[in-house]
């Protein structure tokens, strides 16, 4: 006789009553959807910046116009880089604050992070202005195009981050960012740290590595 190795009396019943049949809040990986999505998005961003950094390395020696060494102000950019990196610290403190339910500190640190980011952007605007006055326009040389595009692209990313931070701050002030939403802050934090880490690479490649 046919001896079966696998059968249910009623499969539908088995499905309905299997302990695992009720989908838990847990995901298969244990990482929430939002956080996993942000990690994937950042992985993709690596390739985007990879393409732009490669382009810069290829074009960092101009045939005409100012050269990198003539115009870079390393102490200035080092300072603004330091400010940006410190914003990662305040971001961590913000995440830690909301996880503890300390909404007052959350707002302080979110504001501080946004402010440090904005300082960095202001430094970049100042730097661009100075470079432009010294004769390095966007269209001057292959170096100038690559420099402005790469650092400008990073600047746009920081700006988007600032907008997200300010949005979070406004939500928090309106009482719409309770503790159990702490992951939202954490995910924005992931983005923010990524932007900082990318800057470490850009700063090293663009400003520090001699051409």
């Amino acid at each position: 006789m046919a001896e079966t190795v696998y059968a249910h009396e009623s499969v539908a019943q088995a499905d309905a009553h299997a302990a695992a049949a009720h989908i838990e809040h847990d995901t298969n990986t244990g990482i929430s959807n939002t956080k996993l999505a942000m990690w994937l998005f950042l992985a993709s961003e690596c390739l985007l910046f990879g393409g732009l950094i490669t382009t810069y390395i290829l074009y960092r020696n101009p045939l005409e116009g100012p050269t990198p060494h003539e115009i870079y102000d390393i102490p200035f950019t080092s300072t603004s880089s330091f400010i940006l990196l410190m914003s990662s610290l305040t971001m961590v403190l913000a995440v830690s604050a909301i996880e503890r339910g300390d909404h007052q500190r959350l707002r302080v640190w979110l504001g501080a992070t946004a402010l440090l980011g904005a300082t960095f952007i202001a430094g970049q605007v100042y730097e661009f202005t100075v470079f432009y006055r010294e004769g390095l326009g966007f269209t001057t040389s292959r170096f100038s195009s690559a420099f402005y595009t790469l650092t400008g692209f990073h600047g746009v990313h920081v700006t988007v981050g600032i907008i997200m931070l300010v949005s979070l701050l406004v939500l928090s002030l309106r009482g719409k960012l309770p503790e159990h939403r702490s992951e939202t802050v954490e995910v924005v934090g992931l983005y923010w740290h990524f932007v900082d880490i990318v800057w470490i690479f850009i700063f090293a490649v663009v400003y520090l590595v001699p051409s």
Partner: peptide
């Protein structure tokens, strides 16, 4: 929530 969509209420 993705890059630009973090600010959910």
């Amino acid at each position: 929530a993705e890059a630009e969509k973090e600010a959910e209420t």
